[in-house]
């Protein structure tokens, strides 16, 4: 499930996944990213904490938002948690309009989120 625009770092059951692509619009990229993230969830121990760093993402489609929900479902299925970091102000309204701000934790900084998760393990 390789995704050539996803950099993954693992710290025990913490996973920091950074997207290095600006546009998440085409079906191939959307599928590649969601498959890679779900693979990360599946290879993690129970109760993983996933931080998805979207700081470089400037364009999202509704299909990508739907796939993020699919990843969240996979995380919830193994009693884990998932957060989105670095979401640009220009695309943050998308999460509010679709009420996904109620489903995900958000932070401006991915590293801070990882530290917070480390301090407060599941």
């Amino acid at each position: 499930m390789a995704c050539d625009f996803l950099i993954v770092q693992r710290y025990d059951n913490l996973v920091l996944a950074k997207v290095t692509k600006e546009r998440l619009l085409d079906p191939a990229s959307i599928t590649s990213l969601s498959d890679a993230l779900i693979a990360e969830v599946n290879r993690s121990a129970m109760r993983p904490s996933i931080v998805l760093d979207l700081a470089e993402v400037g364009y999202l489609s509704s299909a990508m938002i739907g796939k993020l929900v699919a990843v969240l479902k996979a995380v919830k299925a193994v009693k884990g948690r998932m957060a989105l970091a670095g979401v640009k102000p220009s695309i943050m309204p998308l999460f509010k309009i679709t009420q996904l701000d109620k489903l995900f934790d958000f932070s401006e900084d991915a590293e801070q989120l990882i530290l917070a998760y480390r301090r407060k393990p599941l």
Binding site: S61, S62, G66, V69, K73, Q99, L100, K102, L103
Partner: peptide, 21 residues
């Protein structure tokens, strides 16, 4: 209708809502 709580975890159907906004 994504205003309904049971629709929150659906993986599709958000595009029209976003465009309307």
């Amino acid at each position: 209708d994504h205003d309904l709580p049971q629709s929150l975890m659906l993986e599709h159907g958000r595009g029209i809502r976003i465009m309307q906004e």
